[in-house]
């Protein structure tokens, strides 16, 4: 696993995968994709990164404990559902906001926030598992 080629290429692959995962997550509402897939891609990227550069470097790079990311995901997913309280509709009723930026219209919505929450949960949880299994010198 620790070959020179792998170590050299890994950061490139990882960064491409992470960007791609965000792209997949955000386009999910209209094209194939979504939070689950995006999160899995990002988690795979972290797993690859961990294999190539060691768990400690990955932990240093993402700064936050992955499980906290997952917790934050559940939190904002729930929060996006609570937004509907302001319009007096039932929990998780979606709210859409179309921002006119001149050249294009940017649709913002609570389902988008919800999907980002899903993304973060899957990403955080599976990264945490992968890092924990990879780490600690072969003795988990």
């Amino acid at each position: 696993m620790n070959t020179v080629i792998f170590r050299t290429i890994a950061p490139l692959i990882v960064s491409i995968m992470l960007v791609f995962s965000v792209y997949v997550c955000l386009r999910g509402h209209n094209e194939p994709g979504g939070g689950f897939i995006g999160g899995l891609i990002a988690a795979s990227a972290i797993a690859i990164f961990g294999m190539s550069s060691g768990v400690e470097r990955v932990r240093a790079a993402i700064r936050v404990d992955p499980l906290s990311i997952a917790g934050f995901g559940v939190f904002i997913a729930g929060l996006s559902g609570l937004m509907s309280l302001f319009t007096g509709s039932p929990f998780l009723t979606s709210i859409w906001l179309y921002l006119d930026l001149g050249e294009t219209v940017l649709p913002l919505s609570t389902p988008m926030i919800f999907d980002i929450g899903v993304y973060l949960v899957v990403f955080g949880t599976i990264s945490a598992i992968a890092l924990a299994l990879e780490g600690e010198g072969g003795d988990i």
Binding site: G28, H29, N30, E31, P32, G33, G34, G35, F36, L67, A70, G71, G73, V74, A77, G78, G81, F91, L92, S94, W96, P107, S109, P111, F114, D115, G117, V118, V121, V122, G124, T125
Partner: peptide, 27 residues
Amino acid sequence: AHGHNIVNVILVDYRGFDTLGEISVVM
């Protein structure tokens, strides 16, 4: 629901409560 990917719309909008439970299980 303003979404073209029906599967994703079901997941995050129509059955959002369900999905919320599921991500909690994953976590």
